[in-house]
Design a protein around this nucleic acid. Structure first.
Lengths: 146, 146
DNA sequence: TATGTCCTGACAACACCATTGTCAAGAGTG
DNA sequence: CACTCTTGACAATGGTGTTGTCAGGACATA
């Protein structure tokens, strides 16, 4: 494989983190909930892609499709942990359940309306494997099972 | 177009109707509800396909996918009006909303669980155009609007 | 007997979808 | 300067949904 092109399989670059991100990565320090606000925009697209296990190009497409709406700062997308979790739900529905994006939209709208919870629709362990796992604490969900 | 091959775009053949079907087609006779039991298996696959505006091959695939379960008599599929209505809902979700079959399964399961009604999720007129319309009285939904 | 329609299992064509890849040109940051 | 971001665009690949078609057999009807 040649030199890694731009937006290729993402590699974490700490310098990309917005203000405050470093604090969250001190090993063994459990962040106070005010630091772990799940809606706080904190990750650049390459990091969010890595945490969500999708391509940055895919995140841009999800936004175009109306599935995501990350905040902007100086026209840079900043993803929150809630955004990342949402992408993981989408990933669960598309990869694991084979639902296409049109179907995902319907299902997520039902969840937004409070009629369902994706968690309750499928095997909890199955959903958990896709959706939960390190975001703020940077552990890889698959690696956690080792 | 050459001679119509088997299972091609369906053409109604009255001889295919199971017992009792003729009674329902007397013009101007409003059937008693006991005749119009929506769960009564009454239509061969070619007629059901025509009424649902899909191909017989598609009905067989829906059955394979677990989306439909028509009754059998002497190993012949017999579809009820409820079956046909269900196919029309599937058609609405796939053609109109672009949802794939995996997504349709999730949505229909939610309806079966009583959590949602597909009718309430979308514009009622839109759903109506796809789902309602002559089944027992053999009017074509699109033709009704003329 | 002949015809029509059904059955299962199988392969295929075509249009569309989802994800990724790549590119150019520009902007911002260190 | 190097890196990463932005938008807009085109393309490759594997998968999906619908339809088409085939063979061989079963059943009903004329």
């Amino acid at each position: 494989m040649a030199a890694r092109p731009r937006d290729a399989a993402p590699v974490r670059n700490r310098s990309q983190r917005p203000e405050g991100a470093h604090d969250l990565h001190q090993r063994g320090v459990e962040p106070v909930s005010s630091l772990r606000d799940p809606h706080r925009p904190r990750y650049f697209i390459s990091i969010a892609a890595e945490l969500a296990d999708v391509h940055p190009r895919t995140l841009r497409i999800y936004e175009e499709e109306g599935l995501l709406c990350p905040q902007r700062r100086n026209n840079l997308r900043l993803y929150s942990e809630a955004d990342i979790r949402r992408v993981r739900v989408i990933r669960f529905l598309t990869r694991r359940q084979g639902v296409n994006l049109a179907g995902v939209k319907v299902i997520l709208q039902l969840e937004a309306l409070g009629k369902i919870r994706v968690y309750d629709l499928f095997d909890a362990d199955d959903v958990e494997r896709f959706v939960e796992g390190g975001i703020g604490d940077d552990t890889d969900p698959d690696r956690r099972e080792l």
